[in-house]
């Protein structure tokens, strides 16, 4: 295949992913360092519960399953599962069924949540532009991934991304980027990857940061936390975000 390393390919499949990763990492550091106060789920449950009760768990559990599916599918080389005696057909059947289920749950969840944002007045007025951009990126990435998978399988030509997207991603993560590897993937997957890059670059600046505060420590810590008086609570420091001084 000629032109594998053309400027556009290197830009799209080497520069863009690295840039996204860099923004993702540095962005999170920056946000944590300077905006701990803004680091929150910013839940809208106090406004509305009926729709959220369905939409939010559907989306979150769905997306968690999707995430773990991606970890396995992208990071475990096909040769390893083959060595375990799992054929491509078997693998695909399982991944497709479980993945589609999870993907559909996540999409249904997003659909309910977006509907809720649009129709419940109080939730709508609490929706920032930042949130809207986040919803667009999230929905586009989800739909591209799920749509391409469904289309491929239902049209009878499932694409084995573990020959294309997965080795490419590993090459990027191992700092030996090989743009050519992904070119064999269908357009849908390539767009899915680009959308994901945009999402990752946007991540640290959105409410999505709350993913990194998943409170697993709660399982082991003592119930009641005692802390000594915090000298940092002094007003000699600049007032922090959200706490304006009265005079």
């Amino acid at each position: 295949m000629s032109g594998n390393d053309s400027a556009v390919n290197v830009l799209l499949w080497v520069a863009v992913p690295y840039a996204a990763i860099a923004v993702f990492v540095v962005g999170h550091y920056w946000r944590y360092r300077f905006d701990k106060f803004g680091w929150t789920t910013r839940s809208s449950q106090v406004y509305e519960r009926r729709l959220l009760r369905w939409g939010s768990p559907l989306f979150h559990f769905g997306i968690l399953a999707v995430f773990f599916g991606h970890v396995v599918g992208l990071l475990v080389p096909e040769s390893w599962t083959a060595a375990l005696g799992v054929s491509e057909g078997m693998y695909h059947a399982v991944a497709f069924s479980v993945g589609t289920l999870a993907g559909l749950a996540a999409v249904a969840g997003v659909a309910i949540l977006v509907y809720r944002r649009r129709t419940v007045g109080s939730v709508f007025s609490a929706t920032t532009r930042n949130d809207k951009a986040m919803y667009v990126l999230l929905a586009v990435t989800l739909l591209l991934g799920l749509g391409t998978t469904l289309y491929g399988t239902l049209s009878g030509h499932p694409h084995d991304y573990r020959q294309t997207v997965s080795p490419w991603l590993r090459s990027v993560l191992l700092l030996r980027p090989h743009a050519g590897l992904i070119l064999g993937a269908p357009l849908g997957f390539r767009l899915h990857v680009l959308a994901a890059c945009a999402l990752f670059a946007y991540w640290p600046f959105s409410r999505l940061v709350h993913v990194f505060s998943a409170p697993v420590g709660y399982l082991t810590r003592p119930y009641i936390v005692y802390r000594s008086r915090d000298p940092r609570l002094s007003s000699s420091r600049a007032a922090r975000r959200g706490w304006e001084k009265a005079s």
């Binding site: 505060s213 409170p215 005692y226």
Partner: peptide, 23 residues
């Protein structure tokens, strides 16, 4: 998140605004 704590000096219960994640 362990953001709510009891001050060991005077027992006042406070929310650490930097640690609260809105759960």
């Amino acid at each position: 998140s362990g953001a709510i704590y009891k001050r060991s000096e005077d027992g006042i219960v406070l929310v650490d605004q930097d640690r609260c994640r809105g759960w």
